[in-house]
Design a protein around this nucleic acid. Structure first.
Lengths: 393, 393
DNA sequence: AATCTGTTTGACTCCTGAACAAACTATTTA
DNA sequence: TAAATAGTTTGTTCAGGAGTCAAACAGATT
């Protein structure tokens, strides 16, 4: 059931998103970009100014003719809280409409969800109280694990040891703000399309490489979560049924061979490769962290380099699967490995080239970790509904 | 850029599709189903009757009140030509709006595309001439291979030995009808969602198992083709870099282990498993066809049974990948294997259960081959634009 | 004078909601 | 038994509100 208001909905989002990406822009610019009439754009912009999403700025310069009034997003319109839950620490940040981070705090991620939620809520509350001038729009949370999107609950997060944890309800109760949760890899994928760096790209995969491997898939411009929200677990595709055990309960999953943990295992026991070695948790035997391996390799350590090369080969093997199966325009790699991109990239490219014969022309790029893609994804998650047309909501 | 006509577009498609799935239906039924006002439905139905998509039938029965006028699709409104190119034969069919097949003809699929296209065009022309009473809407073609959707051309079809073949242009020139081409697996996926058998399902994969393996992916209700049209080649995901050679140029692809050809190879040389055996074309050495193996197994032949069991294990392994990565509501298996579904299904289910720990609750179902899913997909392809709202053109 | 920006206005499309006409069943009344 | 009446459901009509468009117009600058 669609009324004529659906047109306004679509056009309004299109105008607002154009301003977000291209600001500053004049009404005439917007008319050209969106294909709408200048009169229509004026009406929509008036509405957006009324609702304080947009503000008028100074006059622009042109070679001739009347000078255009430039339009900007009103950064004071809304503040968004982004919460990035990672295995060791959790980042709580306050961002504005331009996804610029205004304040940020870190807390330790407790293994006991009950205690953790209490601490998280109080820190979040404090951040809100410290910024009384901000009109808060909502809270976005990214969690490394499988989510139930209907119940808005964490189903299972292996890296955290969580099982059926409800973050939404306590956060909403203690802050009074709407909370949305999203899988970590999906958040990264969202951040990438939100950033505007991939113009015209409707098919993209974010590959998160850390203790595990996650895949956030965007196809036809929409996140692929699957009806149960379980999509995106390509990290647990079985490459070798007789391989080492995985946290998921299976054996020889892709992430067993291509995650940071795999590189650590490789580095520590560089002989008994392929058979069932101990799980290789970060706190175990060796004591060497993935960051150590990266540093060692950068300083020329052969053994560390070989471990990374092996990891890269397996990363390539799995990416070839994604290229074959989904042929996205871009695969964005997120994680510490991107620190040694110059080393691993050629290996990945070569393996993908060998194993994917689809001529799919998928670009493989490293994400800029300094831009905190996961955190920005949570902010995009909250803002999405205002900037993208909600069809079939 | 959206005008208020977009609402009519959406509602009209919604009404027309409701009639298609649920006919016969009254205007009041439609209002209830679509959520529109009875007045709006009346206007839209009038328009559809004017354009001859819909016809009024008899009066319906009700316990009390005015009797409703029942509405039907007007099967005479449009005829669709569906062409299903398969490795050995090509089927040309004429269908009506209800996807009922009115006429059907088979020709041999020539390996030389030039000769084949000539024959195909003349047969298609003849079918059109034999039905002067039909108003033809268009032609849908399904080809087993990788397509370039922008150029509407076959890029590469390994099973046919085709390379950059343009079917569209000659068919359009000789018939004067618009032609659309689609990958075989995608056509099957389209047919499944078109059939109405999977209500409420927006995420589905059609798995075509024959000489090769294809995957037609529907996510969020839309076909996933990838920007280059190369998506859906999960059949060429590498399971074993040292495995037997594949037609694609790689080694150890999924389809090398799980296609009909794999079962034949397994049956014929049930000792030298895993090493580089001859490609196993159907016409080669052994002389045993896949149909033979199915019949043998049905009659209790052990060796044939083992070959099928092995094939089923690998089918399960690959499906586990799809479940892990995309978690669709349904995977529909298309191909001759479904003849022995009772035998292979438990094996597939078991392997998927072992290898996919996502609790994704994906149903795995056999397609009803007698309903010619691929052919019906080509018809859906042509009709789609009238029955589905075209958003973002 | 030329050119570009932004606003105003009338025409057209679309849906809604309420009122209304049509058609049928069941029940009551004569 | 036949006719009248009440109650229901279907389908149509019409005024009103929301949207976009296209063209004319006003404003501002070189």
């Amino acid at each position: 059931m669609a009324s004529s208001e659906i047109a306004r909905d679509i056009n309004r989002s299109s105008v607002l998103d154009s301003i977000r990406i291209g600001q500053p822009l004049s009404r005439a610019d917007l008319a050209r970009q969106t294909g709408l009439q200048r009169s229509t754009v004026s009406l929509i912009v008036d509405e957006l100014i009324d609702e304080r999403w947009v503000v008028e700025g100074a006059l622009g310069q042109l070679p001739r003719g009347r000078r255009p009034r430039l339009l900007y997003l009103n950064t004071h319109r809304a503040g968004i809280i982004g919460i990035n839950v990672m295995p060791r620490q959790t980042v709580i940040a306050l961002a504005d409409l331009n996804t610029r981070i205004l304040a940020q705090e870190s807390i330790a991620t407790q293994l006991d969800p009950k205690i953790f939620i209490k601490v998280l809520c109080s820190y979040t509350q404090r951040m809100i109280e410290h910024h009384p001038e901000v009109a808060f729009e909502g809270i976005g949370v990214s969690v490394p694990g499988r989510l139930d999107y209907e119940a808005q609950r964490v189903e299972f997060a292996a890296n955290l040891g969580w099982h059926r944890v409800d973050l939404k309800e306590p956060l909403e109760r203690s802050t009074g703000l709407p909370v949305q949760i999203e899988n970590a890899a999906n958040a990264c994928a969202l951040a990438e399309v939100w950033s505007g760096a991939h113009e015209g790209v409707t098919d993209l995969i974010a590959l998160t490489v850390s203790d595990g491997i996650g895949t956030g898939i965007i196809a036809n411009g929409h996140l692929v979560r699957g009806p149960s929200g379980a999509a995106g677990e390509f990290g647990h595709v079985c490459l070798n049924p007789d391989g080492p055990e995985c946290k998921c309960g299976g054996r020889g999953c892709w992430e067993v061979y291509a995650s940071n943990v795999a590189a650590i295992r490789n580095y520590s026991g560089q002989k008994d490769n392929g058979t069932r070695t101990p799980e290789g948790k970060l706190s175990n035997g060796s004591g060497t962290s993935f960051a150590d391996i990266l540093s060692l390799a950068e300083r020329g350590d052969r053994r560390a380099g070989r471990a990374l090369d092996e990891m890269a080969r397996y990363l390539g093997l799995g990416m070839a699967m994604l290229v074959n199966g989904l042929a996205p325009a871009v695969i964005v790699v997120v994680g510490e490995v991107t620190r040694v991109w110059k080393r691993v990239s050629p290996i990945i490219e070569q393996v993908v080239h060998e194993c994917a014969h689809t001529h799919a022309a998928t670009r493989i790029e490293p994400a800029d970790d300094s831009k905190q893609p996961r955190l920005r994804g949570t902010i995009a998650l909250v803002l999405q509904k205002h900037f993208r047309p909600r069809l079939f909501a």
